[in-house]
Amino acid sequence: MKNKLFEKYFVFSPYFWLVLFFFIPLAIIFKISISVSEWGMPPYQNIFLFDNGFKINTTFENYVYIFSDFYYIGSFVNSLILALISTFFCLLIGFPLAFYIATSNIRLRNILLVLVVIPFWSSFLLRVYAWKIILQNNGILNVILLNLGITSEPLQLLYNQYAVIMGIVYTYLPLMILPLYGYLNKFDLNLIEASKDLGLNRFKTFFKVILPLSAPGIVAGSLLVFIPVVGEFIIPEMLGGSDRLYYGKILWEEFFVNRNWPGASALAFSGIIILVLPIVIFQILYSRFSQKNEI
């Protein structure tokens, strides 16, 4: 009897907190996204009206408005492309790094892993700010390029999409390396030797042995980078220019500048549906089908 009470306490305390402060806020976003906008405070009408009997007052206008305007669609596509490119570069840099760390001897391995992840602990904002210093017109990168004679005058490195990609790859790299390392660390290195002994060349060994075995790590790492990057606001704001608009910026301005709460909510809710739901479903299915949970 006592155990039951105790279990309930453990299960329901966080349950209560998360329903109240996480699920209900999400529901409110949805509610406001289907509300009729109006001038006033708050800038939307109630979805239930009681003046002439009970009436439900909802609209999908906000979604139509977003999905028919290239300004919003274009920004979302820009963000998806940005996330895709950044994820690709994180993988390109992260994979060899994770692979070589995983194949080091055990003492070195732990030291290297800590060294790779430690920068992730230092402030995110300040790491982005560091790139602002590096990429200045009279910054260190331009000084190096000038001295090497690669360019004769300082390049405009800051305030464009390349600077944004640079900043993202830099700040999100550890998120790619960790899950990759997790999977690469698990598999038996003798498999590589075996495949070489069986006559497969390096190229084939990589594509037939190493890549399939580390596939779950690649998927996990890519998701951990891709999803937050689509909603990234700070990095484009600090390092980006006016050449491209991104989802995060549009959402921010729709809310704080245009004061269009229903529009901003519709943008946010579309973002949840498009980005997060597929992964959550995948995760729930995955945890149902796999006997042992792993992270």
Binding site: V11, P14, Y15, L18, V19, F21, F22, F23, I24, P25, L26, I28, I29, I32, L223, L224, I227, P228, V230, G231, E232, F233, G248, L251, W252, F255, W261, A264, S265, A268, G271, I272, L275, V276, I279, V280, Q283, I284, S287
Partner: peptide
């Protein structure tokens, strides 16, 4: 329960922030 306890890991901060403010 799993949904509630794992979604904040991946949800873009911007969406989380907006939902909290409107809440």
């Amino acid at each position: 329960y799993i949904f509630l306890s794992s979604t904040p890991l991946v949800l873009p901060e911007l969406i989380l922030g907006l939902s909290m403010l409107l809440f």
